[in-house]
Amino acid sequence: VRLVQFQKNTDEPMGITLKMNELNHCIVARIMHGGMIHRQGTLHVGDEIREINGISVANQTVEQLQKMLREMRGSITFKIVP
């Protein structure tokens, strides 16, 4: 398990697509080339996201998580399992 932190201070999309796997874990499905996450190089396709800013992603839908990420500003921390 590791923590990945980055800054999001604009309306620029993060450039990641999330999916739920068969165990209902949140997985990074795709990283858009040239997007914020791609430029930082901190997340990778297949990484499992456990928490966003200390909030568990368990029992949340992809749509709920994407909305939460769109609305966040400032420092964002993901707890991930590579």
Rank of each mutant, 00 (worst) to 15 (best):
K19C: 07
L43I: 15
Q66K: 06
H38V: 02
C26P: 14
H33A: 14
R73G: 11
F6G: 03
E71F: 14
Q40R: 07
N21D: 13
R73D: 13
M36D: 10
I31S: 01
R39D: 07
N24P: 00
M32E: 15
F6C: 12
R39V: 05
Q60W: 09
M72I: 15
H44D: 11
V1R: 05
I49R: 01
N24C: 05
M32K: 15
D47Y: 01
K8G: 04
H44C: 12
Q40E: 14
E22K: 13
K67S: 10
T10E: 08
V57H: 01
V62A: 13
L18R: 00
I55N: 06
M72E: 08
A58N: 08
R2D: 05
M36Q: 12
V62S: 13
R50D: 03
H33G: 09
I80F: 07
D47C: 02
G46C: 01
G74S: 03
Q7E: 15
K8C: 03
V1A: 06
K67H: 15
T10Q: 07
T42C: 11
S56N: 11
V28N: 00
I80D: 00
V81F: 12
G74Y: 02
G15K: 02
L18V: 07
R73P: 03
D47W: 00
E12K: 07
P13Y: 05
V81C: 10
K67P: 04
I52A: 03
G15D: 04
T61I: 02
R30N: 14
N53S: 05
F78D: 00
G15T: 01
Q40W: 05
Q7D: 15
L23S: 15
I49S: 00
E51S: 15
Q64E: 12
R39H: 06
I55D: 10
F78R: 01
V1Y: 14
R73L: 06
V1S: 07
V57C: 10
P82H: 05
I80C: 08
T61Q: 10
F78N: 00
N21L: 04
E71V: 11
H38R: 04
N53T: 02
R50S: 08
I31C: 03
G34F: 03
V81E: 07
I55S: 11
I31N: 01
D47Q: 01
L3H: 04
L23K: 13
K79R: 09
E22Q: 14
Q7L: 11
R30L: 04
Q7G: 04
L3G: 03
L43V: 12
E48R: 10
V45Y: 02
I80A: 02
S75A: 15
I49C: 01
A29S: 09
T77H: 05
M68F: 11
G34K: 05
Q7F: 12
L3P: 03
H44E: 14
L65S: 05
T42R: 10
L18C: 04
K79W: 02
H25N: 14
D47I: 01
T77Y: 06
L69Y: 03
Q40V: 09
R2C: 07
H25C: 12
H33V: 13
R50G: 03
M72Q: 09
G54S: 08
I37P: 03
H25L: 09
E63R: 06
I76Q: 01
V28I: 15
N24H: 13
F6D: 01
V62L: 12
R30M: 06
L18Q: 01
S56T: 11
T17A: 08
S56R: 09
E12M: 12
S56A: 14
Q40L: 09
E48C: 12
I16A: 06
A58I: 14
M72A: 14
S56P: 14
V81T: 08
N59I: 03
Q66V: 06
I16M: 08
Q5K: 15
L43G: 00
G74D: 06
M14V: 12
V45D: 05
R30I: 03
L65M: 09
V45Q: 06
N24G: 14
G74E: 03
R2Q: 08
G34E: 06
I27W: 05
Q5Y: 11
L65C: 09
Q7Y: 14
K19H: 12
E48V: 09
N53Y: 02
I55Q: 15
F6M: 15
Q64P: 03
N9W: 08
K19G: 14
R73E: 12
S75F: 10
N21I: 05
G46L: 02
L65I: 15
E48D: 07
H44M: 11
I31M: 05
R30P: 00
I49P: 01
T17I: 15
L65F: 04
I16L: 15
E71M: 09
Q7V: 13
G46F: 01
I76F: 05
I31Y: 02
L3C: 05
R30W: 06
T42S: 13
N24L: 03
D11H: 15
I49W: 00
M68N: 12
H25F: 05
F6N: 01
I27R: 04
R39T: 08
G35F: 04
F78V: 05
T17N: 07
L23F: 10
I31G: 00
K67F: 11
R30G: 13
R50F: 04
Q40D: 09
R39C: 05
G34D: 11
I16Y: 02
R30V: 05
T10M: 13
M20N: 05
H38A: 11
C26R: 02
I49Q: 00
D11Y: 04
H25S: 09
G35I: 01
N21S: 10
A29M: 09
M20C: 05
N9G: 11
K19S: 14
L69N: 02
V28K: 00
T17S: 09
A29C: 04
G35V: 02
N9F: 11
G35N: 04
V62F: 04
E48I: 08
V4D: 01
L23H: 14
N21T: 10
K67L: 10
H38I: 04
T42E: 14
E51F: 03
L18G: 00
R70L: 13
G46W: 00
F78P: 00
I16D: 00
I49V: 13
G35K: 06
G54A: 05
L69W: 03
R73S: 14
T77G: 04
G54F: 10
R2W: 03
N53D: 04
K67W: 06
E63A: 09
V62H: 06
A29N: 05
F78W: 02
R70I: 08
A58T: 12
E71R: 12
V1H: 04
G46D: 04
V57S: 05
K67A: 11
F78I: 10
I16Q: 01
T17C: 10
I55C: 14
V57T: 14
G74T: 03
V81N: 06
R73F: 06
E71Y: 14
I55F: 09
E48F: 03
M68K: 13
K79N: 07
G46V: 00
I76L: 06
E48L: 05
K67T: 13
Q64H: 15
V62Q: 08
N9R: 11
V45L: 09
T10V: 06
V57I: 14
